[in-house]
Amino acid sequence: MIYIKLLISFFQIGLFSIGGGYAALPLIEEQVVELNGWLTANEFTDLITISQMTPGPIAINAASFVGNQIAGPLGAIISTLGCILPSYIIVMILAYFYFKYKNIKIIQGVLGGLRPAVVALIASAGFSILVTALWGETGISAKLSDIDPVAVILFAISLFILRKFKVNQIMVMLGTGVAGAAVYLMMGR
């Protein structure tokens, strides 16, 4: 049955994608394109593009998209469920041990080492996002002309407003979306 197939495939994707973000991509491609032929290679590229344009983790996006294409809304729900089930089980087991043993000295040591690392990993990801926003997909370069001036102005104003006035972050994101779209469309891009 197709529902069971979807469930098993996305369960595997959820189980084996460690490291987050695009680490899951090759796994999704293997299950969805190569093993089951649910999407063509072109459709898979479209899926990645759409994932970048919509909110949500790419694995969940893939599960919902493929599930619906293959077996309708119920297929989307079952695929998504399959995708989060392994995370849920493993994370709950870890949570149990974490809350039980977090006050043990050696665990405190491990967590003390992990906390600054987590800040660093978020900072590193944030830096990549900033580079993509200002320079585009090609990445950082020394040439001043490669920088998107519209993005620089939007970024600077947004950051200033966020630091100074503690405004709602989602409003800032939506605001730059609207303002940016107006400018880009007027510039004919």
Binding site: Q52, M53, I122, A125, G126, I129, L130, T132, A133, L134, V150, A151, V152, L154, F155, S158, L159, L162, Q169, V172, M173, L174, G175, T176, G177, V178, A179, G180, A181, V183, Y184, L185, R189
Partner: peptide
């Protein structure tokens, strides 16, 4: 165009 504009906002928020 909206998504391109939003990238700068997302970068600022993070």
């Amino acid at each position: 165009a909206v998504l391109m504009g939003m990238q700068a906002g997302v970068a600022a928020v993070i």
